[in-house]
Nucleic acid binder design. Sequence first.
DNA 1: CCCAAATGTGAACGGAGTGTGAAGGGCACG
DNA 2: CGTGCCCTTCACACTCCGTTCACATTTGGG
Lengths: 226, 226
Amino acid sequence: MEPLLLFPDPPPPELAQALDLGGYPWKAANDELAAQRAEPDEGWAGAIVCADKDPDGAFTLCRALRKRDAPLEPLLLLVSGTQLGDLELRDELFDDFCLAPFHPRELEARLKHLFHRSGRGSRPELVEYGELMLNLETYQAAIEGKPLDLTYMEYELLKFLASHPGKVFTRETLLSRVWGYEYYGGARTVDVHIRRLRAKLGEQHANLIQTVRSVGYRFGQSRWGT
Amino acid sequence: MEPLLLFPDPPPPELAQALDLGGYPWKAANDELAAQRAEPDEGWAGAIVCADKDPDGAFTLCRALRKRDAPLEPLLLLVSGTQLGDLELRDELFDDFCLAPFHPRELEARLKHLFHRSGRGSRPELVEYGELMLNLETYQAAIEGKPLDLTYMEYELLKFLASHPGKVFTRETLLSRVWGYEYYGGARTVDVHIRRLRAKLGEQHANLIQTVRSVGYRFGQSRWGT
DNA sequence: CCCAAATGTGAACGGAGTGTGAAGGGCACG
DNA sequence: CGTGCCCTTCACACTCCGTTCACATTTGGG
């Protein structure tokens, strides 16, 4: 079995011990660079990130792992009870979480359940909305079956928008969540990318991205229920 | 929001209380048949099944819910620590689980994460008053199900008024709380926006916004009766 | 019934916000 | 070291809508 990636390095003793007892091989790393160096040829089986001691480092690593061409899955987060409120805005950064201090058997049960789910591919690698389809594995986009030739940023922006249909985002929010939290640049950059996306979507589908004046942009129609 | 299906009936008090506090509507049922009878037209938002007291009944229900043409998702399982070993062979019956006794905030965090993953996103923040509904995430408004095409200021003003039904606001108060504390401009601006709002609400609902002579405006019914 | 204050109404102006075309420049690639 | 891509920025054009004003209408008190 491929090893699990652990954060931080060294990992908490009780975590290492639980994995050893369960027969799960693992390697630890403190950042994305160290994770790349330690990564075996077969790749990682998944990752377990402890966010209780160094939340910033933990979430930064999660973000890096998810930004890869082939996002690392499954990703299990270990948090303390006081951090539960921080999870809501980071839902896309992990697949499951476990409260620390954890019971070894709960950890193992969650790992098994995660492997079961990812093994059957129940987690969608596609983002779909109407005639639009994004293949997250091959980095390809298509509408009405016809492929779209998108650049990297166009693809990332469209992926984010299509993942949250109906919701309005300000330019600042888009910059921070698509370009990155540390990005500093003009907000008009968003406009230009929106324009090119509309152009490539074609006249018929350009209205998939709507302008909400003095607020930002919205993808698709509103969902009143769920 | 559609209600959650709970098992068993009656559900454990701490579960019902946690959901009530979190604002999640729910209905309980003891088996698939009762669940079908209690199901609203909009369907279930998901299910929470307690497996600690009656494991057989719980897993039977899970199996039935998953055998539907449209399998019920997401499904959260509540189990005691001693049952962790039983989960391995039932991975396909649930999407996530939570150990009992649970912390209310962990339960809520898991629900939010489940809704996020199943593509429904977290439940939208709504402002409702009778037939009027404002979706704060999508910046859209509707009355009697028909969407209203509001401008930014109209939306902000209506949102503020509808958030405080029955209360009277002076024009100065509205200017400072909707337009901003530092705003300096004529108070008649409010009148014009009120007029446009009434027009867009339609003749039938124009009286949702009432004029209180020499005071200001009020949304909805007075607190002193009709 | 009259008057004054308050509010409703229609229209016009002007500026903020957004669309658009084009050019600059960083980065990967050969 | 050149070359092409594309992210970013800028200047300009244009639309929209927030604001204001003049005037009409309503309200309530004397």
